[in-house]
Amino acid sequence: MIELVNVTKKYRVGIHEILALDNINLKIEDEEFVAVMGPSGSGKSTLLYLIGCLDRPTNGKVLIDGLDTSTLSDKELTELRRNKIGFIFQQYYLIPTLTALENVELPMVFKNTSKTKMKKKAEELLALVGLEDKKDRKPNELSGGEQQRVAIARALANDPSILLCDEPTGNLDTKSGEVVMNIIKELNMNKGVTVVLVTHNQSLSKYANRVIKLRDGRIVYAD
């Protein structure tokens, strides 16, 4: 379960202070599929990064499975991300020097998984996203949709319980976007992965069980 209690996040940009999130209270149950929507600058990405332990709130608490992340050290946060959270970004962020297979292996490398186990798992995951025949290609030899599918496989490498998606279809055409979204939806339905999806694309709300709308750092709508 993900829980945000009175979360406020302020940024300093030059001399200006920007209030990205303003006193947010939110609970996301296990196996939920939540879409966080809102115009750019509404704070939705900030919310996602706070849940993903990539950033710390200025005030308030973020709890992951009841664990208050504000009390954790950098090392502990890293381990939490590695073991419980998978990220999917709009720009895929694949390592250009590594093949598809190696990119999927990378989170397992950081977890010191054995080589054979790592390879087997990565191949399974690439098969899951339908890229078993392109495992030896470098990212620049793959289409956008394929790259995002590799990124999904990578996000699943350490069997996370939470999948955080930041505009996963933002750089994709409609058809590839649909393929990617279907994979994410299936993971949620069949494997019980909690999904938090951040997007400003209204059409993606149909995949979610719940939609949260943000504006100026506040929740303006939650069904």
Partner: peptide, 10 residues
Amino acid sequence: GLMRAIGAYK
């Protein structure tokens, strides 16, 4: 940043 996000220590 990506490597840190997916579980690489400092």
